[in-house]
Every structure is written in structure tokens, then in C-alpha cells.
Design a binder for these strands. Structure first.
Lengths: 141, 141
DNA sequence: ATATCAGATTAGATATAGTCTAACTACTGG
DNA sequence: CCAGTAGTTAGACTATATCTAATCTGATAT
């Protein structure tokens, strides 16, 4: 489908379009969960050619730096990744740690006075609670 | 100062006020940075009595569960902690990973339709960019 | 087409962050 | 004073991520 788009976005960032990197990006774009690095590695390795752990982490780092992928740190768990396609907020489940997308809406920025000399790059909203799967069970707590 | 307040808040949560736990909380309350677990351990161990790594992590976990301390996960770095005093947002520096407080203001909640069956507990805003110390250097990038 | 070489990949070693275990200690209520 | 519960501890262990050094690849110029 948009293989060409992926290739172009790599080149725009000065990154070669290697099979491993392409497979990683294609997986992230079609994947509607927010996989961990380990899950990404496993998924890519079901295809051909395979990729190593180091390469997966290298590529994730490069793609995050290029602004093509977003990394979401989760307390006490492995980081999650997603392709920065449509703008969205994140919901993190207290119980299972899963990260889910929530419809985007604009967020008011802080007053520039309170920012001081800081340089603001982005601004994200994180919701916490119980996901649809964990809510019934967790209700007892 | 508010030693009694700390003691009371522990008891309200069903936690004993032990010297190690008290020292941890007192340090977090007077500390205006957002220290990592390792920094907290080191600070507490400059006093008497000392605390161990396991105890520090145990106490941090208990205090987070009790809602007295907040944990902030940072991509690729150790988690940061702060005493949940005044409500505030967080600014995370892309370059040095430091977490800083930003004046609190209300954030619009998502429409309940998009939440579905999820149970919302809290909602925090995370700003990213370069802190005042890193901004000048990072400006070149 | 082919040579070139910066950029990419790899396995495995290493580092870092956090958790677990099992023995021990210290409060608390009776 | 005793029993029971909660807390502490050192050190082993696990999980996550990074580094190293050797090797390979693919875009570019020839």
C-alpha cells in the first residue's frame, strides 16, 4: 500500500530504507496496539529477513529521533511504541499497562511566563485508569 | 515542620511511620527536583538510620499506591518521583531527562463517548522540549 | 556494471533499573 | 511477655536496554 510513502519518509530523514527498518515501520503502521520493543522484534522476525535485538533498538531510536515514531514510557514496564500517524492522546491502564489511543483534541498551552527559558516541542495528554478489559475486575479495589 | 502531617498521612493509609519511610517522604517533600530512586536512596543514606535499596523501592511502591507520591516514567531513563503536594503538570527535557513542575491549570476531559468502558482515574499533561539549562546548547539542532 | 564506503546489521557482552527471597527486626495489641 | 503483623535487609535474580567490534549492504560515482 504506502510502501513508497515509508521509503520517502525515511529518505527525507536521511535514513536508508533497509529491509529491517522497513519491516519495523510497516508493522508499526498496521499495528493498532502499542507494542513493546520485544513484541516488535518478534513480529518482524516472523517475516523475512530477520532482525536482531540491537538493530531493532537502533532503528527505534533513529525513528524516534526522526519524529516518525513515538515512544511512550510506562511506569514499571517496558516502553511502548507507535507510528506517529494521526495525532492522538494516550490512555494507560493501571492494571495491565496497555497503551491505547484516545481521540485527539487540542490542549491549551501553558502561559509563556511559566515556561521561562524552556523551549516547548510538544505537549501530550496522558489519561490513566482501567481499560475496558480490566475495568470490571479492577472495580473491586 | 510538618512531621506530624507526614505521620498522619501515613496512618490514614494504614502505613506505619518507620524511620526509613519517614526520611524518604520528608526528603521528597523538601526536594524541588524530581529525583530517581537511586538519588532518593543516596539522600536518605546521608542521614541516620540508613535504608536499603529494597526498602526504598518497597516504600516508593507503597506510597505511590497510597496516592502520596507520584511516579513519572521517562523514556530511556530511570523513573522520577515527587511528593503529590500541589497539583502541577510536568515538563520533561529531551536532552537531560530532568522533570520539572509547571503551573497547574485545568485540562479538558475527553468526551465520554471516546472513553467507552474505560474508567478514568487521572489525567496529566506532559510537556516536552528543552529545559532552561539545555535550551541554549540544543538550539543548534 | 563495479568499486567504494558511510551507514546498517549482528551476536553476545555489558550496563542499568527494578523485583524477589528468605532471614531477621520492631512495633502493636492482648 | 507473647504472638502476630508489618517492615527491613543483603544479595541473588530478572527485565530492559545499550555497547562493542566484526561484518555486511546498498546508494553513489565512476
Amino acid at each position: 500500500m504506502d510502501a513508497a510513502a515509508i521509503k520517502r519518509s525515511f529518505e527525507d530523514s536521511g535514513l536508508r530504507c533497509t529491509p529491517q527498518r522497513y519491516a519495523l515501520m510497516a508493522f508499526l503502521m498496521e499495528c493498532h496496539r502499542h507494542p513493546t520493543a520485544a513484541e516488535i522484534l518478534e513480529a518482524v522476525n516472523r517475516l523475512d529477513p530477520r532482525s536482531s535485538r540491537a538493530t531493532t533498538y537502533n532503528n527505534l531510536r533513529d525513528l524516534v529521533q526522526a519524529g516518525l515514531v513515538r515512544e511512550v514510557a510506562v511506569e514499571g514496564r517496558a516502553a511502548r511504541f507507535d507510528a506517529k500517524g494521526v495525532h492522538h492522546h494516550h490512555f494507560i491502564c493501571d492494571h495491565c499497562g496497555n497503551v491505547e489511543d484516545l481521540e485527539w483534541y487540542d490542549v491549551p498551552r501553558p502561559r509563556s511566563r511559566s515556561l521561562g527559558k524552556r523551549v516547548l516541542r510538544e505537549c501530550e495528554l496522558i489519561f490513566r485508569g482501567l481499560c475496558a478489559k480490566c475495568a470490571p475486575r479492577g472495580a473491586s479495589r
